[in-house]
Amino acid sequence: MSGFSTDGHRRCVSCGGLYYNSHRTPICGNCREENRRKAAKIGRVKKFMRVVIFISFLCFYLGFLLYFLLKDKKPHFAKPILYASIAGVCFYMFVYFSQYFI
């Protein structure tokens, strides 16, 4: 998420401005946006992406389809899906061809 700056302040998720991070003041001074709510939303998105990446590993053809659907709109979501699909193809090829070597 947003990291600390050198003087102990945090950066706002919305505008990037500095605000003092304590339990009483999670509100940015510039845009008056509450950063706690956005942090919870980011956590839900990360959990959803883990599930999508796992599904794209198991069903690699679905992962390739999701990649081509999301690559223009959300490339930061599409790239891990593509990597998981490629890893799934490699895993299935390894399992398939390993029966000939055993």
Rank of each mutant, 00 (worst) to 15 (best):
K46D: 13
A39K: 04
R32Q: 09
L66G: 02
G63F: 10
I53L: 04
I86R: 05
D72G: 09
A78C: 03
H9P: 00
Q99T: 06
C15M: 05
A87T: 02
R50C: 08
L62C: 14
F91H: 12
A84K: 02
I81D: 01
L66C: 07
F57L: 13
H9M: 10
L18Y: 13
S5T: 15
D7A: 10
G17N: 09
M1N: 03
C31L: 05
C31Q: 08
S22F: 01
K41R: 13
H76C: 02
F48R: 12
F64C: 13
F91S: 14
M49T: 04
H76S: 10
S98L: 00
P80S: 15
V13T: 13
R44F: 15
I102T: 05
P80W: 15
S56F: 10
I81H: 05
L70F: 15
L69G: 02
R37K: 12
R50G: 14
G43F: 14
E33L: 04
A39E: 12
G8D: 03
Y67R: 09
F54G: 12
S2T: 14
S14V: 11
Y20T: 15
C28Q: 03
K46Q: 12
A87K: 03
K47I: 03
G16C: 07
I27F: 06
G88R: 09
F4M: 14
K41N: 11
V95A: 02
A40S: 09
I42Y: 15
L70T: 14
K71P: 00
F97Q: 02
M93L: 14
T6Q: 12
F60D: 06
S5Q: 11
F48Q: 11
Y20K: 13
P80C: 14
E33G: 02
F60A: 14
S98Q: 00
H76D: 08
K79V: 11
Y96S: 08
I81T: 06
D7M: 06
L62S: 14
L69Y: 12
N30R: 09
Y67F: 15
K73D: 06
Y96K: 06
K38S: 15
G63M: 09
S2H: 07
R36Q: 11
F68N: 10
A84R: 03
A39D: 07
K41I: 08
P80F: 15
F94M: 05
M49D: 04
K74S: 02
M93R: 02
T25F: 01
Y67H: 14
R24H: 06
I53C: 12
I55V: 14
T6K: 14
M1C: 04
L66V: 02
Q99I: 01
Y61V: 15
N35A: 13
C15L: 03
